[in-house]
Design a protein around this nucleic acid. Sequence first.
DNA 1: CCGTCGGTGTTACCGGGGGTAACCCCCCGG
DNA 2: CCGGGGGGTTACCCCCGGTAACACCGACGG
Lengths: 214, 214
Amino acid sequence: MTALEEPRREQLLNAADRVVSREGPGASMNAIAAEAGITKPILYRHFGDRSGLFQALTERHTSGLLAAVRSALAEPLERRERVELVLDTYLAGIEARPQVYRLLTHPETGDPDGVGNALAPALRQIADEITRAVTAQVDLGPDAPLLSEAWGRAITGMVLAAGDWWLEAKPCPRARMVQALADLLWGRLAAAAPLPTPLPNGGAGSETAVPAAE
Amino acid sequence: MTALEEPRREQLLNAADRVVSREGPGASMNAIAAEAGITKPILYRHFGDRSGLFQALTERHTSGLLAAVRSALAEPLERRERVELVLDTYLAGIEARPQVYRLLTHPETGDPDGVGNALAPALRQIADEITRAVTAQVDLGPDAPLLSEAWGRAITGMVLAAGDWWLEAKPCPRARMVQALADLLWGRLAAAAPLPTPLPNGGAGSETAVPAAE
DNA sequence: CCGTCGGTGTTACCGGGGGTAACCCCCCGG
DNA sequence: CCGGGGGGTTACCCCCGGTAACACCGACGG
């Protein structure tokens, strides 16, 4: 309707992509314009303002990651394997093109005020996807709406932070990281045996291994 | 050593605090200087550059939150209750002074490049604290170093994202949110019964309730 | 053939942000 | 009397996002 194939726009987005891949987000409009061989006003004609350009840029790449996560969430596997598949999908994505996914996951915090910016738009979409999947697939009783939404956000933030660290430190292969995160989600932290409590405290704190069931 | 009580500096930080509380991070140096009743160069004399000022500002508030989390992590409680206490401590903190904790948790993403910025410095300290506590308190076998560090990051990111959402949407009282997050950490997502799989797929995908034990 | 319209492009500019150079002034100790 | 060092200022630089005004060129209609 508005635009069947706007090739110039695609060219400009390609240029923006190149410079963002090179300089990360925070690339200046001047730099992008120069990379495209033109000057700023043309960019503004096409995208309105900087956020418009970056929105177009992110939407371009979001679809791929989002579709991958969505399909992983719908895979007819046993639950643990499905979760591992989702984790692996995300980590594979950020591993393949770090700069691009940095753009998707770490937006410009320039907006004026209002809390709730921990998750970039692309990640909020992923969180919604997880929420939907949990709602549809898991029986959580009367608290289901609250739990699924909170968990969607929580899991997304967890994978974001852990994935960022993993990408930075590369402390282990991807599969191991997937296992570590799935283990956490599976309550391994809760169920693991306590250590001999070398607390300088009096001996009152004898803990016992507590099973995951509340 | 270098400075026993620099009262001017404290005054300037108070002014910065006021304007950041009012305008959120991203407050301009001009605005802060004006609030302090002075002009920019003085700020730069005292703090070097903008990041120096904000670093000083965050360190001021970080200590409180960090100490609270640390002491919660060391509390001689049963593990689940200790985790709930930590979660509640964090959520209470961000609830009490949102703008301040927004400053602590959502830094200026202005740095040039390099991934691994999901967690602001203050949060990285919290993540380290969690890592230490897990290492000291839980028996995770030979993978302990990897798991504890990954989990420290993961849990921190989880609580960051979930807390941000909670603060923004306030969908439930704090205690309920704490329960939701602790339940997630306790593997409730993994252990919950599946729903009747209304997949448009052929009937092959009949799942059975799978216990958390791997 | 001419007009005008839309898309592409430019230069030049504005306001405001971080950051700095140069200068000022006043008080305090020698 | 002098000097020097904090607290303070004006004025400036450069870059950034964003915009106004103008120029060019090809297409289409009268």
